[in-house]
Computed example of a mutant assay.
Amino acid sequence: MNNKLFLAAALLCAAPAWANPEWVAAEVVKLDPARSKITLKHAPIKSIKMAAMTMPFRVRDAALLAPLKVGDKVRFHVAEKDDELVIQEIEEVKR
């Protein structure tokens, strides 16, 4: 009984990755709404041990790209879906 109680408490205390996503700073380098893609020059993504770099990402919904333009400073968070990093949310950072 105590083991089950301990396990339940541990599961409640452990925050799943999706519950508190890591926001990553970036700059928009290229937009491709037709393909639901964006190229970002991003800071390190600590949760997946990825170094800072410039790379393309798929977005979960092309509508997320509508308010953005090349050169915008943004913050985003990603999730792994079908062995690919997909941007779940992205927003412009007001200067």
Results as ranks from 00 to 15, higher is better:
Ala66Gly: 03
Asp61Cys: 03
Val70Trp: 04
Ala25Trp: 06
Lys41Asp: 15
Leu65Ile: 04
Asp82Ala: 14
Val74Met: 01
Ala51Asn: 15
Leu64Met: 01
Leu11Trp: 11
Met53Arg: 07
Lys49Trp: 06
Ala19His: 05
Leu12Ala: 14
Phe57Asp: 01
Cys13Tyr: 10
Pro21Met: 03
Phe76Leu: 03
Lys81Arg: 14
Ala25Met: 10
Ala17Cys: 10
Ala10Met: 12
Glu27Asp: 09
Glu27Met: 01
Ala63Asn: 05
Ala63Ile: 07
Met50Pro: 03
Asp83Phe: 15
Ala14Thr: 15
Ala26Ser: 12
His42Ala: 07
Leu11Gln: 13
Ala8Asn: 09
Arg35Lys: 15
Ala17Val: 15
Ala10Trp: 03
Ala79Gln: 11
Val74Leu: 02
Glu27Ser: 14
Leu12Met: 12
Ile38Asn: 07
Lys94Val: 11
Thr39Ser: 10
Ala25Gly: 11
Arg35Glu: 13
Lys69Cys: 05
Val74Thr: 02
Ala14Ile: 13
Ser47Tyr: 04
Asn2Leu: 10
Lys46Asp: 11
Pro21Asp: 00
Glu27Cys: 08
Lys30Pro: 03
Ile48His: 10
Lys73Asn: 13
Ile87Tyr: 06
Ser36His: 04
Lys81Glu: 00
Asn2Arg: 08
Val86Arg: 02
Val74Glu: 05
Ile48Phe: 15
Ala10Phe: 08
Ile45Thr: 09
Arg58Cys: 02
Glu80Trp: 08
Lys81Val: 10
Pro33Met: 00
Leu31Met: 04
Pro16Lys: 05
Lys49Ile: 07
His77Cys: 11
Met50Phe: 13
Arg75Gly: 06
Glu27Tyr: 04
Leu31Thr: 06
Ala52Asn: 05
Ile48Ala: 08
Lys41Ala: 15
Val28His: 05
Pro44Thr: 03
Arg95Asn: 12
Ala19Gly: 02
Ala8Phe: 08
Ala14Gln: 08
Leu65Trp: 04
Glu92Asp: 06
Pro44Arg: 05
Lys81Asp: 05
Ile38Cys: 05
Val70Thr: 14
Ala79Tyr: 00
Leu11Lys: 15
Pro33Gln: 00
Phe6Thr: 12
Arg58Pro: 08
Arg58Asn: 12
